[in-house]
Amino acid sequence: MKFAVVVFPGSNCDVDMFHAIQDELGEEAVFVPHSEYDLSSFDAILLPGGFSYGDYLRSGAIARFAPIMKAVQEAADEGKPVLGVCNGFQILLESGLLPGAMKQNRDVKFMCRNVKLRVENNKTMFTNQYESGESIVIPIAHGDGNYECDDTTWEEMIKNNQIVFRYDGHNPNGSKDDIAGIMNKRGNVLGMMPHPERAVDSLLGSKDGIRLFQSILILWRENHVVTS
C-alpha cells in the first residue's frame, strides 16, 4: 500500500509519519510537497502535524489554499483514506473536509504530553483494530486543539457516529464534548489532535498508535484481494 505524506512549509511531524509507515507498518511512504497537484497514484493520504505557514492568521488557514489541497479533496471524493493529525486536522477543518473549527486551548498554552483516549467508534477504516470503548495512550502536542462546532453539527455527528475519539478522563484543551478526533459522514476522512505516529514503538512510551495505521492497511487489503 502506498501512502502520501504531504509536506507543507512548517510541517514538522512528516518524518515521524514517514517512519511509522515505512519502518513500523512496513508499507511504502512518499513525501509529497505542498506544491504538487496530483495524488492519484496513492492509496492513502496523510496530513502530518506541525505549524504550516507558521500558523499565521489561524492554524491551517493558509495551507488549505496550497495546490496539493485540490488533490487531497479529489482523493477524499474518491473514498480514499485521508488522515489529518494535529495541524493536519486543523487544515481539514479549514478546508471544509471536516465540520467545525479549532480554537486556542482553554488554558491558553501549548500542551505536550501523553493523554488517554477512548475509542468511541471502532467500525471505521481507521479504528477496526481497536476494541469499542478501549482506552489507549497517545501523545498530544498542540496549542490550538479546542474543538468547536455549533449544536446542529454536533448532533448530526453523534447521529452518524462521526466522533471517533474522545479524551478519556481529563480533557486537556477544553474541546467540545471531549472531542479528540472526528471523521466525515462517509467515513474516509479522519482528523485527530493526538499523534498516533508518535506512539508506534514501546520505546516511545506507547505503541497504541500503530493499530490505527494497521486498520487502514487491513481494510485496504481486504478490498484489494487478488482474485485471479
Partner: peptide, 8 residues
Amino acid sequence: RLLANPVI
C-alpha cells in the same frame, strides 16, 4: 474565504 473563519 480567508480573513475570518465564519464557523467561530
